[in-house]
Amino acid sequence: MKRCYEEGHSLWRDARRRLARNRAAMGSLLLLLLVAGACFLLPLSPWVANPNEANLDNIAAACSWEHPFGTDQLGRDLLARVLYGGRISLLVGLVATLVATLVGLVYGLISGYAGGRTDALMMRTVDVLFALPFIVLVVVFSLSIEEPSRELTEYLVAATGWSRESVAPLTGLLPLFVAIGALGWLTLARMVRTQTLELKGQEFVLAARSLGLSHAAILFRHIAPNLLGTVVVYTTLAVPGMMLTESTLSFIGLGVRPPNSSWGTLIKEGADRMEVSPELLIFPALFFCITLLALNFLGDGLRDAIDPRSAKD
């Protein structure tokens, strides 16, 4: 019934070929690269203004050649803020995706596959973590890693010679990453576990087992590929949530530090001003939505490409 007995790498090679044929996915990939390139490279060019330089004589200005997206409530160039904010948000998105996928997938797989007591213990742990008040956890985390992250800043400043202003925004994100790492994978772990439970009773797993394959081989070669659909769908769902969580946290002093921006904080600030200057909301939201939409199509394409069942389509 299942055909995934081929060698691992051939599965991936097939997948790559199928992905390259998927026009929507490739377009999305291009778009994502474009957005990421714009966020990381464009600010290095002289055309993008300093995102943190206030100009109180030019508050909430309309779009112009000098300020393509206009200016914000302190007269700062909105384009620059969106681009710089993109760096933070893309980074958060990347970390969130990696953590959710790796931790959630492995945890769920093991829990579902092991079953019995182990499963119960692992899933009840998830329940506990799920119900813990998120803000409390994050604040406590950030307090305990405040010192290490400060030391890291100092170390980076000393080791690389970068200015403190350019290092601090990144090391300041450390508590946030820890928080995402700690809690971002819970829902996915539950979903993966349910599906693993279902899959492990199926014939192909029994067959693999009777062939004498090791548990690890069964788990990662035979069960995991069947779960990629769920993982991809869930990840594209969870990433926007995490990016927005970042904005909530930066308002209590965690995450990105003012005056630096992220898409989340820009959208939050824009939402407060939507009645008076909607463009403050529209531009960052546009970038945010386009990126996530592209991510979504890419994810779907990836899933179709990897899914062993679509192999014969």
């Binding site: 926007p240 949530g241 959208i267 939505c289 939409l293």
Partner: peptide, 19 residues
């Protein structure tokens, strides 16, 4: 439908509610 769904996921409650 999926475009609409993605919009629903990307538009946070703090934007949707005041709108």
């Amino acid at each position: 439908l999926m475009l609409a769904a993605m919009a629903g996921i990307c538009i946070p409650a703090f934007v949707l509610a005041p709108v």
